[in-house]
Amino acid sequence: MTRRLRPWTVLESRELLDAEPFLKVHVETVELPDGRVIRDYYQFDMPSFACIFAETEDGRIIVYRQYRHGPRRVNLTFPGGHLSPGEDPLEAARRELLEETGFVSDRWTALGGYTVNANQGGALSHMFHAAGCRRVAEPSSDDLEETEILFMTRQELVGAIARGDIALLTQIALVSMVWQDEIREAAAAGQAAAVPDP
Rank of each mutant, 00 (worst) to 15 (best):
1 M>L: 07
1 M>E: 08
4 R>D: 00
5 L>S: 10
14 R>Y: 08
23 L>G: 04
25 V>Y: 06
27 V>I: 14
33 P>G: 01
45 D>H: 12
47 P>I: 06
48 S>M: 00
50 A>S: 15
60 R>E: 11
61 I>F: 06
62 I>V: 11
63 V>S: 00
63 V>K: 00
65 R>V: 01
69 H>D: 14
70 G>Q: 09
74 V>Y: 01
77 T>M: 03
78 F>C: 05
81 G>W: 09
81 G>C: 06
84 S>G: 08
84 S>L: 14
86 G>A: 08
89 P>T: 08
92 A>E: 00
93 A>S: 09
94 R>A: 09
104 V>T: 10
106 D>N: 10
106 D>P: 05
114 Y>D: 07
115 T>N: 14
116 V>K: 04
119 N>T: 15
122 G>Y: 01
126 H>L: 00
127 M>T: 07
128 F>V: 12
131 A>E: 12
131 A>F: 03
131 A>I: 03
132 G>I: 06
133 C>T: 05
133 C>K: 01
134 R>F: 05
139 P>M: 04
140 S>T: 12
144 L>S: 13
146 E>P: 02
146 E>Q: 15
149 I>C: 11
149 I>T: 15
151 F>G: 12
156 E>P: 04
156 E>H: 09
159 G>V: 03
159 G>W: 02
161 I>C: 02
162 A>V: 14
164 G>Y: 13
166 I>N: 14
166 I>A: 14
167 A>M: 07
168 L>Q: 12
174 L>H: 07
175 V>P: 00
179 W>T: 00
181 D>N: 09
181 D>Q: 14
183 I>K: 08
185 E>C: 11
186 A>L: 13
188 A>W: 11
188 A>P: 08
189 A>M: 14
190 G>P: 01
196 P>G: 00
198 P>I: 02
